[in-house]
Design a protein around this nucleic acid. Structure first.
Lengths: 265, 265
DNA sequence: CAGTGGTCTAGACCACTGG
DNA sequence: CAGTGGTCTAGACCACTGC
């Protein structure tokens, strides 16, 4: 009898019997990990949308026929991974890229003086937005086959009125049907907020590789700088649920009045 | 009657009475936070040294007269902050910068191909090591008064035989009495491992600000590159317990065959 | 006021480690 | 085998939120 819990558990013996048997065989995860996986599935399936309230711990405990403590531990991990947000007295909410206080959750570029907020929202300018065939390296990064259709976007972000970030972005065509320059230009929220609201694609995690480079003439012009001013090259692969890569981004950052910030521990 | 626990609690009523009263007044922390603070104090005081075993949860629970679960939650947080490491069946150990598997815990520069390990240990070359008076900005970064004595170190790290990192390091003179170029050169472990083993100074957390810059002639020579090759400028402030800044480091990283890696979530 | 997440306890059993 | 951390439960009380 596998210790894994049934998927919607119908009638079954008291929870203590199910759980007393958990983790006997090394191949099976602890109960709270299984619960975490089930909640993850619901998140992924869109059962609760970004910003929405998920069921209370007690409800989830009843649904999965485990104790509240076990559900709590599952949710604790999800909260630690920034997939949900707990608010005492209110409930647990699905995390989003559209909260007031954490806009541009993944943008690590900060002004040397003053706070991020002081600059107001970044100005976006779309230079290009078209569907193309994925090159070999783009395809590999996104887990596609080379030649698959991808949406390629080139844009400039201006911070405090100064063009500071030049980015090329590649997205698999399929989940982003209907996305075009028009929509990106006028959408009243950051790109990742649009992705989750309009296309149900949630950016959950990202990896960045950073180098120092010199721009070519064209790039320097776009950023209103010159060929001899070094820039940060930031290559990001963003992942959605299940560690599936969903975006490749190659950015050039001016660092004359901003810096990339990182915390180590 | 304040809910805070006594420091070594002598004779006292059963724990449930102490803890039942916890968190009634908003100014006081939860019990497990207080326990965490006490364990932190012991770590800071050197009661248990890096790499050593700390008392078991049951022992600590007895010492602080709380339940094992409360101690567990305190240790969970310390583990999440990488201050201790839990090992099932063995115990909980004080974290260190000298473990086999996580050498250079704070170094985010990785080779473009292959693993960090493949390069073996980095070659160190000390260019300079002297005591000087802190300038205004150095002093401010380290929480000192300008003019205070600081140890200034300049060194080169070579990865895979190639000089890749040029660093200036500033440390408050006082905790590092007797540290000199000789010692740094021949010490058989990373610098942060030496700090904790020889001087009891544990690097717990660090903040880095990253920019793209061009080197001057001298810097380019040291890194065997040229003035037109952009480098990463990495300014790090490392903190010991209680968020006290203890090291300022300004590094130049070659990124022609390495990159700075970061994970966002 | 009821409902939520947050803290704390007590006790059971588990898996892992080492002697 | 005893000792450790890891999981799970059950029940109590708390602080915070909003009606």
């Amino acid at each position: 009898m596998p210790p894994n819990i049934a998927t919607p558990p119908e009638v079954s013996p008291p929870a203590r019997i199910d759980s007393a048997v958990v983790a006997q065989t090394p191949a099976f995860s602890p109960l709270y990990q299984q619960i975490k996986g089930l909640i993850l599935q619901s998140l992924q399936a869109g059962e609760w949308k970004p910003g929405e309230l998920i069921p209370s711990e007690i409800e989830l405990a009843a649904r999965f026929r485990v104790s509240q403590g076990t559900v709590r531990k599952a949710i604790d991990e999800l909260a630690a991974e920034n997939l949900v947000t707990r608010r005492q007295g209110k409930g647990t909410f699905v995390a989003t890229h559209n909260e007031e206080h954490v806009q541009y959750r993944f943008l690590q570029l900060h002004p040397d003086v003053g706070r991020q907020q002081d600059e107001g929202r970044a100005q976006r300018h779309i230079l290009e937005c078209k569907r193309v065939r994925a090159t070999v390296d783009i395809a590999r990064s996104l887990g596609l086959r080379s030649g698959d259709s991808v949406l390629q976007v080139r844009r400039i972000l201006s911070l405090g009125g100064v063009p500071t970030i030049l980015e090329d972005i590649w997205l698999p065509s399929q989940p982003f049907k209907g996305l075009d320059a028009e929509k990106m230009t006028h959408y009243p929220a950051p790109m990742y907020a649009m992705f989750e609201m309009e296309y149900g694609v949630r950016m959950v995690r990202a990896e960045e590789k950073i180098r120092a480079v010199l721009p070519d003439i064209q790039q320097a012009q776009w950023l209103q700088t010159d060929e001899n001013t070094p820039l940060l090259s930031v290559e990001r692969i963003a992942y959605t649920y299940n560690d599936r890569p969903i975006e490749l981004r190659r950015g050039l950052y001016r660092t004359d009045s901003h810096h990339y910030r990182n915390t180590l521990s």
